[in-house]
Amino acid sequence: MSEITKEQIRQPENLVYTKTKLLTDKALSYCPGCGHGTAHRIVMEVIEELNAQSETIGIAPVGCSVLAYEFMNIDMQQAAHGRAPALATAVKRLMPEKLVFTYQGDGDLAAIGTAETIHACNRGENITIIFINNGIYGMTGGQMAPTTLPNMKASTCPYGRDVVTMGNPLKMTELVAQLPGVRYVTRQSVHTPGNVRKTKKAIRKAFDMQKENKGLTFVEIVSNCNSGWKMTPIQSNKWMEENMFPFYPLGDIKVDGQLVK
């Protein structure tokens, strides 16, 4: 009994977890330890759980996740920078029976796409927005983002973000939660197993609400950018807990159309 071999354990009937088939076999283009990969995976796991591969249209942004369509094994459209909610609006209006989501970074959603985001939210488009907030422009090499924290360093604020001259970080999630068209708003993370499980539940909830035509659902995932922050992945996750979470606190912000707290 004590001598169970690895081969005996590694049997299909004993499988606990493996990468979903809704992710392609292509190696992810993200930096080691980047939360994008985890976020991609749980979105795809939820779609798999919902058996909705043939019913889902995803919209990729411009930014690090511009190539999301290389990894997500569903029909996808790649939008111009910031415009994903406009594409999603049309897709959902023209095919209301489909599950439609955008996957956007903070530069895409909270800077160049502010108008498209706010207005899609305000119209209560029946779509889901997955918002990855790592407080920096990763793909272009670590420039200041609309979400960069006060005094946080980036390549275009090398001495730290001076809020007097560079403005304050924009809390888009709290902002869109104010809009009547928005049904569900939550802020989560994917840096620990517990947080991944919570975030996956949140995404499931968002998609379920979309299926029930409840209005716009918005899931922010506060994530790391170890390359941009110039830290190891483990350091970046710790730094995120200590610096990002106090400013961007995790938890539900709006549930069933009601603001929490």
Binding site: I57, I59, Q77, A79, A80, R83, A86, L87, A88, T89, A90, V91, R93, L94, M95, A115, E116, H119
Partner: peptide
Amino acid sequence: MVVLQAESEVAAINMVYGGASCGKRV
């Protein structure tokens, strides 16, 4: 047919992009 007043010309043309991507006449 869907008719939608967008928040800007930028949004409108990107809605066209999204709709055209679905094989629709937009």
